[in-house]
Write a protein that binds this DNA or RNA. Structure first.
Length: 494
RNA sequence: GCCCCCAUCGUCUAGCGGCCUAGGACGGCGGCCUUUCAAGCCGUUAACAGGGAUUCGAAUUCCCUUGGGGGCACCA
C-alpha cells in the first residue's frame, strides 16, 4: 500500500467525555497519519441511543482541538466519505445487513431480550464454558418467521458465524492471532430499533471510507475475528490491524471514572499544558529510544512508527506527567506563560482583586513563580499576595525560631526604615541595606529575610524575597510590614 | 468458567542471542547550591515472575506454571 493511501480514523462514541486512554488512541492514529502523509478521519459512532450523552461530541472535538490533533475528514471538516456520524448512515447499514440476509450469511432473530438475559444468567450459573447465543433462530422456517412477525415481534439481524474452523488474522503489533470459530457467537448486526451494532457499522464504515489501518485499543482484539469474518462475508478485504496496549489506572484495571480525573479536559482545567500531555501520552506505549523523554510534536511526527509501539499495558503515572508539565512550563518565556496562565488568574484570584488583570503585572508575577509550578493553576493559588491589598496569617509565623515579639518588632521597624530610603524600589537596591542591617544587629540573614517574607507575603514559602518585594511594590511592602508590627503589638495570642 | 493478549526497577521504558556485572526517565533517598520554597547539579536506591528446553552463550528463542489485563450485550 502506498503511503498516500493511508487512511486511519478515530471513532469514538459520544457516551461520555474522552479520557486519557481514548485520546492516546486518537494521538497514535494522528501521529501515524501525519508521519506517513495519510488522512486522519474522525467518525462519531453514535449508534446507541440509550447511552448518548449531551455535549459529548463537542467534548470529543474540543479534546482533539486542545491537543492539536486536526482531522482531515469528519465533523465540521466534512469530506467525500461522509456523513461522519453513524446515526446519519442508517440506510447504508440496513442495506448491507439485508444483503447478508439475502445471501444467507445472516438471519432474523426473534428472541426477546428477556430470554437472552435469562439464558446468559443460566449459563453463568452453570459455569458453562461457552456463553454465547444459542442460535435458536438461525434456521427458522418461513412459517416460524411469519408466525413471529404476526405477533408483532421486531427482529434483529444476526450474523451466521461458522460452527467450525478457525479465524486467523495478522496484527501489526502482536503478530498472527487465531480464534476458534466455535468460541464466537452469532452476533447482532442490526438492532430492533433499526440502528446497527458497533460491529456492523464499524465494518461498513471502515470499508466504505477506505480506512487502511485500524488502530484501536486492545480491548477490541477479541472482537476482531468477528470483524474479519464479516469482511469475508461481504467479500471485502479487511484493513490492517494494530491493537494498542491499554492504559490502566493505578489499580491496574481499565481506566474509568472511578480513577478520578481521567477526562482529558480535566487535565486542561487542572493546568496541564497540551504540549506536555501530548509528549507524555505519546510515550505511554511508544518510545523513540533508550533515553528520549522530552520530545516535541514535530519530532514525534517525524519518528513515529508502529514498530516501536509496546505490547504491554501501561499504568498512568501522574507523577511523571507533573514533572513533565513543570518542565514545559519552565521552557516558556514569561510573556507566553502569563498569557496562558491568565485565565487561571482571572478565575481563581479572590473576587476583590480588580479585573481585568494587568497582563504586564501578571507576567512579572509568573516569572517569579515559574520554576516553582508544576501546573498552571498553582500560579494564582500561590500568588494571591501579589494582588490583594493586605495579607493575613497567624501572628505566630512571625515568631519562628524563638524570636521574641519585641525583637521581631525591632527588626521590622528597622527594616521599614531602611526600605523607606530605597529608591527605586528594585531588587538590586533592596538587598544591600537589608543585608547590612542583619549584620549590624547580629541576626542571621535567613532569620531576617524569613521574618520579612512572612510580613510581606504571609507565607513561609515564596519566591526570593527581594524580587518579590520589588514586584509587590514599596507602598504595599511598607504597609504590610507596619501591619505586622501592629499584630505583634496586639494582645498575645492564646 | 471459557477464549485472547501480556510479563525488565514502585511507574514509563531501552534491550530484538554475545556490546548487560541490564541503560535512561519519573518517583524515593542523600548531598551540593541557597534568605524560604522550588529549580539546577551530583550521587544513590530498585527489575529481567518461576521452572524446564534450545545454544558454546539467553532478559532476548520454545514449552509449562504462575501472575496481570481484556473479552464473552439488541454497549461501544
Amino acid at each position: 500500500m502506498s503511503t498516500e493511501n493511508v487512511r486511519v480514523r478515530y471513532a469514538p462514541s459520544p457516551t461520555g467525555y474522552p479520557h486519557i486512554g481514548n485520546i492516546r488512541t486518537a494521538l497514535f492514529n494522528w501521529l501515524f497519519a501525519r508521519h506517513l502523509g495519510g488522512k486522519f478521519i474522525v467518525r462519531i459512532e453514535d449508534t446507541d441511543q440509550s447511552r448518548k450523552v449531551e455535549g459529548a461530541v463537542e467534548q470529543i472535538l474540543e479534546s482533539l482541538r486542545w491537543l492539536g490533533l486536526d482531522w482531515d475528514e469528519g465533523p465540521e471538516a466534512g469530506g467525500e466519505y461522509g456523513p461522519y456520524f453513524q446515526s446519519e448512515r442508517l440506510d447504508l447499514y440496513k442495506r448491507y445487513a439485508q444483503q447478508l440476509v439475502d445471501v444467507g450469511h445472516a438471519y432474523r432473530c426473534y428472541c426477546s431480550a428477556e430470554r437472552l438475559a435469562q439464558m446468559r444468567t443460566q449459563m453463568a450459573e452453570r459455569k458453562e464454558s461457552v456463553r454465547t447465543y444459542d442460535r435458536r433462530c438461525r434456521d427458522l422456517s418461513a412459517q416460524e418467521q411469519a408466525g413471529a412477525e404476526s405477533q408483532g415481534i421486531v427482529p434483529v439481524i444476526r450474523f451466521k458465524v461458522p460452527f467450525e474452523g478457525e479465524t486467523t488474522f495478522h496484527d501489526l503489533i502482536r503478530g498472527d492471532i487465531s480464534f476458534a470459530n466455535a468460541e464466537l457467537d452469532d452476533l447482532v448486526l442490526l438492532k430492533s430499533d433499526g440502528y446497527p451494532t458497533y460491529h456492523l457499522a464499524n465494518i461498513v464504515d471502515d470499508h466504505t471510507m477506505e480506512v487502511s489501518h485500524v488502530m484501536r485499543a486492545d480491548e477490541w482484539l477479541s472482537s476482531t475475528p468477528r470483524h474479519v469474518l464479516l469482511y469475508a462475508a461481504f467479500g471485502w478485504t479487511p484493513p490492517l490491524y494494530a491493537h494498542l496496549p491499554m492504559i490502566l489506572g493505578p489499580d491496574k484495571s481499565k481506566l474509568s471514572k472511578r480513577h478520578g480525573a481521567t477526562a482529558l479536559l480535566d487535565y486542561r482545567d487542572e493546568g496541564y499544558l497540551p504540549e506536555a500531555i501530548f509528549n507524555f501520552l505519546a510515550l505511554l506505549g511508544w518510545s523513540l529510544d533508550d533515553k528520549t523523554d522530552v520530545i516535541g510534536r514535530e519530532d514525534l511526527v517525524k519518528h513515529f512508527s508502529l514498530e516501536r509501539i509496546s505490547r504491554t499495558a501501561a499504568i498512568f503515572d501522574i507523577k511523571k506527567l507533573q514533572w513533565m508539565n513543570g518542565f514545559y512550563i519552565r521552557q516558556l518565556n514569561p510573556a507566553e506563560l502569563a498569557e496562558r496562565a491568565l485565565p487561571c488568574f482571572e478565575k481563581q484570584l479572590p473576587p476583590q482583586v480588580k479585573r481585568p488583570l494587568d497582563v504586564g503585572y501578571v507576567s512579572q508575577v509568573v516569572a517569579l513563580q515559574q520554576e516553582r509550578a508544576k501546573t498552571l493553576v498553582e500560579f494564582p493559588a500561590n500568588s494571591g499576595f501579589f494582588f490583594v491589598d493586605d495579607v493575613d496569617y497567624p501572628v505566630d509565623l512571625l515568631l519562628k525560631g524563638g524570636m521574641t515579639r519585641e525583637r521581631a518588632r525591632e527588626l521590622l521597624s528597622a527594616s521599614a526604615a531602611r526600605l523607606d530610603a530605597v529608591a527605586p524600589f528594585d531588587m538590586a537596591r533592596l538587598e544591600p541595606p537589608l543585608r547590612s542591617l542583619a549584620e549590624e544587629v547580629s541576626v542571621k540573614t535567613g532569620d531576617l529575610f524569613g521574618l520579612l517574607r512572612i510580613a510581606v507575603t504571609g507565607r513561609t514559602a515564596a519566591p526570593p524575597l527581594f524580587q518579590t518585594m520589588a514586584v509587590v511594590g514599596r507602598d504595599k511592602c511598607l504597609r504590610r510590614i507596619r501591619s505586622a508590627i501592629d499584630r505583634l503589638s496586639g494582645p498575645a495570642t492564646p
